[in-house]
């Protein structure tokens, strides 16, 4: 038996096996996509020099985007969360709170904000926004902790840059993971995800300058 997906792709026998054993097609697709997105993030860090918030955050945000109904709602929620994180830092600064209570207050405020955004969306007849499922929203809310940690360590500006990098990688990841070509590839030839291992070994041994470093050190190269 061979599974045929919504765009008429014939899945490989192993993928069909997963699906007929009861694993939902969407889940199989996303799990097979995960190593590719992870490798993409590693590539961006090691070769291009785009850092983002580590590997986990952009990965999970990518999947949150995939799970929200359309990219624009995902981006809207992402930006609201980051914006609130920045605003609250100034609001909470004079109180000099300990770390965890401070994060808890942030989460509270962000939750209220998100609820507001969703209601507003519903009110504007943007039903797509209001019907976003809870898990991607939770993922986005927890983004605020990552943001605060970086804010404390490296300051507002650096945190904002990293947030934007995360957003960039996640958007790119979203398009890659929803490209029909790649979906067809992982469904028909699921073993290609094993290729990410040698690719990552090469990335892990890569000692050349990152593309961003050519820019960072341009004055030195000029003076040599």
């Amino acid at each position: 038996m061979i599974y045929v997906n919504e765009i008429g792709t014939y899945a490989s026998s192993i993928v069909s096996f997963f699906i007929f054993e009861g694993v939902p097609y969407e889940t199989v697709k996303l799990i097979l996509m995960l190593p590719i997105i992870a490798t993409l993030i590693a590539f961006f860090r090691q070769v291009v020099g785009i850092k983002a918030f580590g590997i986990y955050t952009p990965l999970i945000i990518t999947f949150a985007f995939l799970a929200t109904n359309g990219l624009k709602y995902g981006i809207a929620i992402f930006i609201s969360v980051i914006f609130m994180g920045m605003l609250m830092r100034f609001v909470l600064k004079p109180f000099r709170l300990l770390y965890l209570p401070r994060v808890a207050i942030m989460l509270t405020v962000v939750s209220i904000l998100i609820l507001g955004v969703l209601t507003f969306g519903g009110n504007m007849r943007r039903t797509g926004l209001a019907s976003v499922s809870i898990f991607p929203i939770l993922i986005m809310i927890t983004l605020v902790e990552k943001f605060i940690t970086v804010q404390i360590e490296k300051g507002n500006k650096a945190a904002l840059v990293l947030a934007m990098e995360t957003l960039f990688i996640s958007i790119l990841g979203f398009f890659i993971a929803s490209s029909p070509f790649l979906i067809r590839l992982v469904i028909t030839h699921p073993w290609v995800i094993l290729l990410t291992i040698p690719v990552n070994i090469i990335l892990g041994k890569w000692t050349g300058l990152r593309i961003s470093e050519y820019w960072r050190f341009k004055e030195i190269i000029k003076k040599m």
Binding site: Q46, G49, K205, W206, T207, G208, L209, R210, E213, Y214, F217, I220, I221, M224
Partner: peptide
């Protein structure tokens, strides 16, 4: 020559891995 010159610079990857 640009690439050759840039080989004299220590980047993040090389610092972490080789040093």
């Amino acid at each position: 020559s640009y690439i050759k010159k840039s080989r004299k610079i220590l980047g993040m990857n090389s610092r972490n891995l080789e040093y």
